[in-house]
Design a protein around this nucleic acid. Structure first.
Lengths: 341, 341
DNA sequence: TTGAAAGCGCTAACAT
DNA sequence: ATGTTAGCGCTTTCAA
């Protein structure tokens, strides 16, 4: 079906246009340096031959690509999708293209992509991951590929990162619930060795401790999905109502939505019996029938910030290589103090 | 910060290992053809030099890449994300890598990516788009890059495609509502020139016509987002209750969820007053507090099917190049017949 | 402004 | 099993 691509290269174009191949290259890259007449001939030759520049040849000659890579655990998670958006927009503005890769939070796939992108000589990597990454990125850096860790602060100062202050996010969430008068708090999420989860729990714990009132129970999950939220709800529902928490900080919105659904389906009133707050403020949090309170990254566009940092790294103008932003609390019905009639 | 990559190539590795560069190449590509001893020396040289194969050189020599491209309007839409999943999985199994591109349903960005991927000499394109694409893809095909249109059937028989029968989906949805006894149906979505929307409406219309009972009102939107759903709900709420439809077919789940939220917030009972059904069966449809009925693609993994078709195209074994699958109805609470007490 | 020509790093065909 | 070598298509320096 498909016509085999007859190998037409710059030389063949040059032959047909009766110019030197170098002139065709000039026409492609700096058209202003080519006389109108030859440009015309070249244009025609390109059309008739169906010439398409071969990127590999170009890149080989240039020694570098014009692409950056974005590795995310799961692009179907709206949070990472939103970041991808920002990355693409900013990269495009800088004349770079973006390779997006889905790692499914698997070390193997991360490694495979890292290797591949290094071989592609991408200008840099933007990496969001739940796995330990700094060592691997350090190796790439030594060999010449810089990277920006996205979404969690790097531990070592050599690794640039753009992150939200997750501890503060956990604290904001728990403090909000305490201010509502709730005292039996629960944190739902895990596994806690994942920074994202561990830090958020840490913050929630801090808030409870600081308040000097209330308790914090921890219900761990192995994944952070809607289904995990439902499963924890089932545990909670198996208890007598008095032994349930009166407020829950979920590790993310997916877990919170699963929790919310299963609790409400069982007749638990939200927020009266149990207040629920999520994290990330994905679009579906606001769209729930009981809109979900959440913690969200600040207005800054994360993806864009990461690209900016990477560009700074590349041209040596990056000042602060570890950027951390404070998150914001978004209060909606799932934790709204009820009006007194 | 970043160590500049000293240009280490296969020849330098060869020199250090005291073998010929061809042997290093062999070691890289068919390790079995290299003696254990030299392999050992080569391995060591690679390590000490931090050698990373240059993909551009390889591809230039090979004349083809090992990648396919997936263009989607919006990867943050869970439907396209799910497709991406399948594409990646199947492509990986076939030893291909995948470039994912977000077009934001913009013709410009589509064009830019198409051009770029053609220059990259990808093996083929998997394209999901709301824009007219067949002409553009026909040009690429003539020049040697095959493609599979994803999600909507191609009009011309020359263009391979993997699609769901959207007309049937619309019909399934409307018929279901009619069987529930609803008579004042509304279709919400648009713009109708988009196949996805037009076909689904067509099917809904067919069902109403076939039933010989009931009416179908059309409420168009310019986009298909949660916000669009809320906006239509506002229109509906402005009417006296008796003039509202008693059942709604939404063009997708996002619109349905927006509709659902705004209606319920205003005290409309779902499904008693208005039954609502969406389309696509995204994860959040099932996770809603009133779980949303929907139409979903059949069990087949679309992404995988598209990759399979592309592979078939490439090796000439593709039999049927236009594959259309019948969708399935998923009934949940938003259209569930109420139990009679 | 244009032409000629030297490689960029790799693979594979061929020779040994 | 290993070495030698000719390009793949392009950009760019240098000369004219």
């Amino acid at each position: 079906m498909t016509a085999p691509r007859r190998k037409v290269g710059i030389r063949e174009v040059a032959a047909l246009a009766e110019v030197a191949s170098g002139t065709v290259s000039h026409y492609l890259n700096r058209p202003d340096r080519v006389s109108a007449e030859k440009a015309q001939r070249i244009r025609r030759a390109i059309d008739t031959l169906g010439f398409v520049p071969n990127h590999a040849g170009r890149q080989l000659r240039l020694g570098r690509s014009d692409a950056v890579a974005y590795l995310a655990p799961d692009v179907s998670n709206p949070f990472f999708a939103a970041v991808a958006e920002g990355v693409e927009r900013r990269a495009a503005a800088a004349g770079l293209s973006v390779f997006i890769a889905n790692t499914h939070a698997t070390r193997d796939r991360e490694d495979a992509y890292l290797r591949q992108f290094e071989q592609h000589r991408v200008r840099g990597l933007l990496v969001a991951s739940h796995e330990p990454m700094e060592e691997r990125l350090a190796h790439l850096r030594e060999r010449g590929t810089p990277s920006v860790l996205l979404g969690r602060a790097a531990a070592g100062s050599a690794q640039p990162s753009v992150a939200v202050d997750e501890v503060m996010g956990g604290r904001l969430a728990a403090r909000h619930l305490l201010e509502l008068g709730r005292r039996r708090l629960a944190f739902v999420g895990g596994p806690l060795r994942i920074r994202q989860a561990g830090d958020r729990l840490q913050g929630a714990g801090d808030a409870v401790r600081e308040s000097g009132a209330g308790s914090l129970e921890v219900l761990t999950t192995t994944v952070r999905t809607i289904a995990a939220g439902r499963a924890v709800a089932a545990e909670l529902l198996a208890r007598p109502a008095t032994r349930r928490p009166d407020a829950v900080v979920a590790v993310n919105d997916l877990v919170a939505l699963g929790l919310l659904q299963a609790l409400v389906a069982a007749g638990v009133r939200v927020p009266e019996d149990v207040a629920v707050i999520g994290y990330d403020d994905i679009e579906f949090a606001a769209a729930s029938l009981i809109p979900l309170s959440s913690i969200r990254a600040p207005q800054v566009d994360f993806g864009a910030a990461a690209v900016d940092l990477l560009l700074g790294l590349l041209d040596g103008t990056a000042d602060d290589t570890q950027r951390t932003y404070p998150p914001e609390l978004v209060v909606r019905a799932s934790t709204r103090p009820q009006e007194q009639p």
